[in-house]
Design a binder for these strands. Structure first.
Lengths: 343, 343
DNA sequence: GACAATTTTGTAATCGATTACAATCCGGTT
DNA sequence: AACCGGATTGTAATCGATTACAAAATTGTC
């Protein structure tokens, strides 16, 4: 393997000069630079990153921790991470936790071994303290999730408002009995969206009924099963808000299987606006998150912190947007008087 | 930051001993081992991987190159990679090429900088020579793709047979005019599946018509558009085989939009068996690939090579399986005599 | 042309764990 | 007690690029 000394020898300079040519390029006369570059090319010299890493005490690598790459939402975020990282010469280590706390912890512990220069968490189920501890050792940025009461750099959307607006959309269409299929309630995202649901109902003076709020786990089947529960109610909802698209699609399956129609009998609204929305029938109305952009900006933030640049803001809130498709319908127009007069 | 010397000092041993305790554990008396371990715990010492990497000339990291993580097929493979890697203490660097040759090349070049100990390619569009060259420098394993005529370790399915069986399924149902929507024909996967299509037709003495074979790019819209072309034919196909599920779903969209029904008017069959298959209406019949397993086995192979273990086989072919759902229907039963007598 | 200021180049220490090799220890044997 | 062999431990070189510092070369000024 050809090393820097070989290049130095061939170019008749010191290794220091070779290094300077290849890194900063500062303070090297163009003559010697040419000589060095020529030698580099002839020998096809590639600096050994392992050595460079040790000396610079940096791996030029960041770890992206996501709960599940298989999920299109997170794979898009990941792509945002990767694009920025690449742009700045960083690499991305894949940290798929498979939704396991244990694995999340393992990944976070990597920071202590200097395997990575920074950490991006797109999942944050671990106790606050652990995450905070990690963020004190090396740069950490949260994407999507955030931690209440701590000032860890974060990129996310306003989940409360997004939830509220989704439900308000349904209310505007005339719905009063609105079911909610939420993700696990120990993740702050879910909590926030439920909070938005409450807000919308309160604002419109609709009483809240606990039984209309069902907890799923973000999977299609959990959406299917919880919807079945909602349908089994003596007075089932006329519309359902699911906190992700997979559960919404599961809910649609359940509705259809019961012989009902979406949106004629029941309106459905999802969250995330993944490509699947346009592929199911009818096409799913959903709250769109700028997922690629979240990844992109989170990584920009992280790299800024790594380079010790001043951050203009510590918390970035990106805009969401309701994507109206074909799964929501006005309430009065599709149910007989019988039901309408309940209100 | 606490280093190995601090531990050595506290335990009153040399750094060599500390290192021995922490790595091989060989030839250390239990007394001193305990002392060292106690010091390690008290100081919360974590070995600096950067230093260790340099000395051992290995990063314990492999790179996984995929065309697009956003694609559920590849994200599953990636998960297989990750699980094995983790099991053996390796990390996975994410190499999403975004289908760009340039980026594929960039990633492959990383091997020369010793950034990674091995390479897994789930995409191989680069010229054979470049890939071969890389494989001479460090361990390389191909997953899914393979390279004709070279003996690079590979894990894949038999795409020719899989394609043939898919088409034979349609033929068995009575179809004679079978359209094919293929992926880009410069990737060997696509070529093989088309080859299977030819085989099935030949075996059943059905003439091949070039116009029935349309090239897409694996995207939903390309499936949609090419299906539109097929439908515009004076004598459109009664069944279509798409070489991935996204294009199949796109084709279904086109069919429905033309006022026709799947499978009553046209049968559709996809490839990969991604979760989407179960979510569209009707549920898509598809050729299932053991994608997670492919990733799993490919990574096992790679790590074996890295550890210089003997490989029992250089090429692994995994079984595929036709997953019959609801998008294929017998031909005779849904078309009038008028058309039937063509044959 | 001499001297200072500046740019360019070289020397050698450094990053921190690993490991080849040397030294020491310890129990057993004669 | 002397010696041997094996186990245990220590010393110091090593991995290869980077960089602080020193030295040399160049440029500019009077």
């Amino acid at each position: 393997m050809v090393g820097i000394v070989d290049v130095a020898k061939m170019a008749k300079v010191s290794t220091a000069t070779v290094s300077r040519v290849l890194s900063n390029n500062m303070n090297v006369s163009s003559k010697t630079r040419d000589r060095v570059l020529k030698a580099v090319n002839k020998l096809e010299y590639k600096p050994n990153r392992l050595a460079s890493n040790l000396r610079k005490m940096s791996s030029k690598t960041v770890m992206a921790v996501v709960p599940d790459i298989t999920n299109p939402f997170f794979s898009s975020i990941l792509q945002g991470f990767k694009d920025v990282a690449l742009e700045f010469g960083y690499h991305v280590l894949l940290g798929d936790t498979g939704n396991s706390l244990e694995q999340e912890r393992d990944y976070i512990n990597l920071v202590k071994e200097r395997v990575v220069d920074g950490l991006i968490l797109a999942t944050a189920r671990l106790p606050k303290e652990e995450i905070l501890a990690a963020s004190q050792e090396i740069p950490v940025v949260l994407a999507c999730e955030y931690i209440d009461g701590f000032d860890i750099p974060t990129v996310s959307i306003d989940n409360v408002s997004a939830g509220r607006e989704a439900v308000e959309h349904l209310i505007r269409l005339g719905h009063r009995r609105i079911g909610m299929i939420t993700g696990p309630l120990d993740v702050i995202l879910s909590k926030d969206r439920v909070k938005g649901y409450y807000q919308a109902l309160n604002l419109n003076e609709i009483p809240i009924e606990g039984v209309l709020i069902q907890e799923g786990n973000f999977s299609v089947t959990s959406g299917y099963e919880t919807m079945l529960k909602l349908l089994a109610l003596k007075d089932p909802p006329t519309a359902v808000f699911a906190t992700n698209d997979e559960m919404a699609v599961g809910a649609m399956k359940a509705i259809k299987q019961r012989g009902l129609q979406v949106p004629n009998d029941i309106s459905v609204i999802g969250f995330d606006d993944i490509p699947l929305c346009g592929l199911v029938e009818p096409e799913l109305t959903s709250v769109s998150q700028p997922r690629y952009d979240m990844g992109y900006q989170a990584m920009q933030m992280l790299l800024s912190i790594i380079k010790k640049e001043e951050l203009t803001r510590n918390q970035i809130v990106l805009p969401h947007r309701l994507m109206i498709r074909n799964t929501c319908r006005t309430y009065s127009s599709f149910l007989g008087e019988k039901k309408l007069k309940v209100y």
